[in-house]
Computed example of a mutant assay.
Amino acid sequence: MADEVEDSRSHRKSERRRRVLGGRQHRHVVRVTPEEEARLLSLALEYHVSVPKLLVDSALAGGADAAAVNASERKELLVQLFGAHRLLAGIANNVNQIARQANSTSEIPAETNATLAAARRAAERIDELCDQLAGELS
Rank of each mutant, 00 (worst) to 15 (best):
S72D: 13
L43K: 10
N70C: 08
G90P: 01
E128R: 12
L137M: 13
I98P: 14
A117F: 08
E15L: 07
E37C: 07
V95S: 02
D57N: 12
S42W: 07
R17C: 05
D131C: 09
A67Q: 08
V32D: 01
F82I: 04
S138R: 14
G90S: 13
E37G: 08
R74T: 02
E136Y: 05
E15F: 01
A122K: 08
Q97I: 04
R120C: 05
E46D: 11
R125M: 10
A38F: 08
H28K: 11
L133N: 06
V69K: 13
A114C: 06
A119V: 02
Q80P: 04
H85Y: 06
H28P: 01
V79I: 10
V20S: 09
S14Q: 10
A66E: 14
L116G: 05
A71H: 12
L55N: 03
A38W: 06
L55M: 15
E6Y: 05
R100E: 10
L87R: 14
A84K: 00
A123Y: 09
E73V: 15
A118N: 15
V20L: 12
A64G: 03
V49G: 00
T115A: 06
A84I: 00
I98C: 08
R19C: 06
N103H: 14
L81E: 04
S104F: 06
L129E: 03
V79M: 04
S42H: 13
E6N: 07
A92Q: 13
